[in-house]
Design a protein around this nucleic acid. Sequence first.
DNA 1: TTAGGGTTTG
Length: 780
Amino acid sequence: MPVQLLKIIKGKSETPLPSHLQKEDLKHLQEGFDHTNKYFQGIVILSYPLTKLRDGTDFFKVVLQDLDNSCSRINSINILIYGKMAEDCAKVIRHGDTVVVAGFKLAKSPTAREDGRHGCHLEMSEEAGSAIYVCGYPTLSVIGVNIIFPSVAPKYVYTPLNCLKDGTIVNLYGVVKFFKPPYVSKGTDYCSVVTLVDPSNVKLTCTLFNGNLDSLPKIYKVGDIVRFHRIKIREYNGQMQGITSVGFASLTFDGTVGAPIVPRTSSKVYTFMDEEQKTIEELRVWAASNLSISGPAAKLSGVQPMLFFDLTCQLVGKAKVDGSSFLLKVWDGTKCPYPTWKVPVEARDLEGEKVLLHQLRNLTVDVLVYDNHVQLAKSLKIGSFLRIYSIHTKQANADNEDVSHIEFHLHGGTCYGRGIGVLPESNPDVKELKAFLESVDLADSQNIESMSSMELDGTFNNVTDLESHLQRCQQLSVTVLTDHQDLNNTELKTILNSTAPQQYRIRAKLRTYKPQKLYQCIKLHCSKCNSLQEVPDGDDFDFILQGSAVTAPNPELHNTSWYDSAMWTTQDQKQRKIAIHFVKHDEMLQQPEDTLLMIEGGTLKEVWKLTKRFKCVIPVRSTEDDLELLDLSAPFLLQGNIKYYGCKQCSTPKPIKSLSSIAAEQRPSWEPTEIAQVLGIELLQYVFIMKFTLVDGTGALNAYLFDYEKFFQIPASEILTNNFLQQKMQMTMNTLCPPGRKLDDLPWLECFIKSYNVRDAMKHQVYYQIFDTTVAEDVV
DNA sequence: TTAGGGTTTG
């Protein structure tokens, strides 16, 4: 039979291809070669309608892509089919099918120059003895030649995530572990990034593109379940990656156990049978106990400053602000407990129902969206239901305001899935929100401006709870002393009128503090020269790494008595050389989590990835006779999330081989202080530096907090890279100095402070520093 | 082509 549908059983074709046939690579399809016993296999990326030639012969043309060479510049070839075979093929061949062709005639392709395909085309007909094997719609897998498909009811095979192979096109199911809602890419399409997991516990990150927003999966939250058809698998950075291929289609399901199984899709036609329903149910059950899905989303009434969260809300108004930002006025029926900012816009620029905007003025919040989100935000329809992902609440003081307010930002970029999704009215969360919005009594909301949301949202069950909480804050101290309990309190006025240096115990309120942006309070301190410096940002490090990558690794320095080396060249145009030197212990390599390695020529991302797996990473470069550290503006050591820096002024870097002394220790601990010492580096320490304005009714003084860890019980070294700790610290500051409160309502702090003199030629000043004080346990 | 998950600092 010249046109044959193949069927696969247990991974093997039921009807094997004739054994004399051998697979031919696309690049070997050249004139002058003998193709008699060869076959070519490809995937249908284009097919034209069946037509008749002038002489009445049927003619059918398809384009096959060679998956084995899909990354080559030329990876597809035209197949011209004539006569009865054309008619037969037109009936069965579909986009995305895998097709095997044999017995073809090869001829120069007159259209190669314009279509960019192979320089030859293949001509086929029954008369010429050609044979076509169609691995029917759908393609199940492409493994060698053993392919595929039922000729009647299509039955799809789904590949578990731990069985994915490079260069294949597969169907799969997965539970959404992470996703970026579709956003406008820098190219021509929308992009959505989705990370899936399945019971094989393997993760797959898929990058999906489509010019039509509707054709991307309709994922609304982590835990949703997706079914992808015809997704292409590629290897990227040593891991499997999914990417949209021709014919990609998806279904998305709510991942909640017991919820109705209703696929979300833009396809008008899709198969969905009992068996697949069972798969969804099984995945839901698996996900319920194996995937951490966060609880109910935050409401406006529950926001805290300095949080990132997903807000489900309704759009009430929108307005242009400037080129890089756009305003959305939204509400969710609850009231934010803090004063919220109002972004000034021209009344004529504000779209939305004027009456409703006025009625809801105390319940709507202004969300400023930036950069890449502006285009999508502009297109949103007033009244639509949105989920704004990874919205950021920021506490700020306007210049002319005494009390701080909360700002809502959707920053630029798509990190952590930051973006905006429109939810359909059928979404269960929207149904619930709609019902709630309808129940909100607008007359009430206008009278509750001064009311705390704690009373509104039930965080506190009754008035007694609320009162006791307020009392706790107002009477007890939110800080405690770690020493000198026998000292008596001294009034601030007395302290201000006394000479320095002295030590005092005080009871005061924190009226304000600086910096308000907490990330700005982390500095690097050199205990030798007592200097303070800013923490360099990632760009500086990237720049230094790029500069060092210009020097190629010196092979003479590889594989010494105390480290083993590996070197390779990147496949991209830059042909960058990377060398990694794994430090040995007792002439043996250690477990990755105990290993210190040195890297030459790595990028920021590569270095960052290595820190996830190995204990210590030291970026180095080659000289003629040893490896050396990079410029000290870059971290000389990375451990976990922490970058360790050396003082430029006080360090005298020693040769890298000095490290071998630690490697020779019985149990090398690779402590940063020890590494710094043998490398001649004066280690800079991360510190919190803040200025507290304290008041007690008799006076006000500014006291400095200089703290490595003790006050907040959070290591200063970890705060810049740990979002959880940042939130914890912000909440601590909110307790010590609650935004929007009057002085009377601020809590008391008990502190030790010491006064000291600072004199220079021009003036003499007394400064105060907090010491031996820590935040109370029930505040942290 | 686009992006290739890992928060801005407005």
